[in-house]
Simulated scan of single mutants.
Amino acid sequence: MADDASAHPDILNQAAQGQLKSIVERIERLEIEKAEVAEQIKEVFAEAKGNGFDVKILRKVVRIRKQDRAKRLEEDAILDLYLAAIGEI
């Protein structure tokens, strides 16, 4: 790849090449960190499962806690309305 940059010096000047390389390297480091965090989350869910917690429900709890409370309550009310309308509750 370095040969490609030197073969086409008119594409990006040296400063832009350095900046681009820096950006790509930062993204690569962040991807590694993201994979490490994902593995840690997986381990926490495994621990929870080992302690008898339902992982599927835990995932829902985490997702719900991310939502705005008012929006969540509105969605719950609409869900209840729809379920009642089709005779499910």
Rank of each mutant, 00 (worst) to 15 (best):
K60Y: 10
K66I: 07
A70T: 15
E36V: 03
D4M: 13
D3I: 09
E88C: 08
Q19H: 08
E31C: 05
E88P: 03
D3F: 05
D4P: 06
Q17Y: 08
A7V: 03
N51I: 02
R72W: 09
V44K: 07
L20V: 09
I27D: 06
I27K: 09
I89S: 10
D80C: 10
A85Y: 07
D76T: 10
I78D: 09
I86L: 08
A77V: 01
H8N: 14
L73V: 13
V55A: 00
N51M: 14
E88A: 06
G50W: 00
V24G: 01
I41M: 02
K56M: 10
D4S: 13
I41G: 00
L58C: 05
I64L: 14
A48Q: 09
V24T: 03
I64W: 11
I64Y: 13
V24W: 00
H8M: 07
K71M: 06
E88L: 14
I57L: 12
I11D: 04
G50M: 00
I78H: 11
I78N: 05
K42P: 05
I86Y: 10
S22N: 12
E36L: 07
R26Q: 11
R29H: 06
I27G: 07
L20R: 10
L58K: 01
A84S: 14
Q14I: 08
E33F: 04
E39A: 12
A85P: 03
A2T: 14
Q40M: 11
K56F: 08
R72Q: 10
A16Q: 15
Q67H: 11
I78K: 13
A2C: 06
R65H: 10
R65S: 12
G52F: 02
D4C: 10
A85Q: 12
I78R: 15
A70C: 06
V37G: 04
I27F: 08
E36H: 03
L58E: 01
L58F: 01
A70K: 15
I57N: 12
K66R: 15
A48D: 02
I11P: 02
E33H: 09
I23A: 10
A38N: 00
E25K: 13
G52V: 01
L12C: 05
A5H: 11
Q14K: 13
L83R: 15
I89H: 12
I11R: 07
S6L: 14
R65F: 08
V24C: 03
E47A: 15
G52Q: 02
G18T: 07
E74V: 02
E25C: 06
D68P: 01
E88K: 15
E88S: 11
A70I: 03
A35T: 01
K56A: 15
E36S: 05
L79R: 15
V61I: 09
E43F: 00
F45Y: 14
H8G: 05
V62G: 04
K66C: 08
D80Y: 10
G18K: 11
E43H: 03
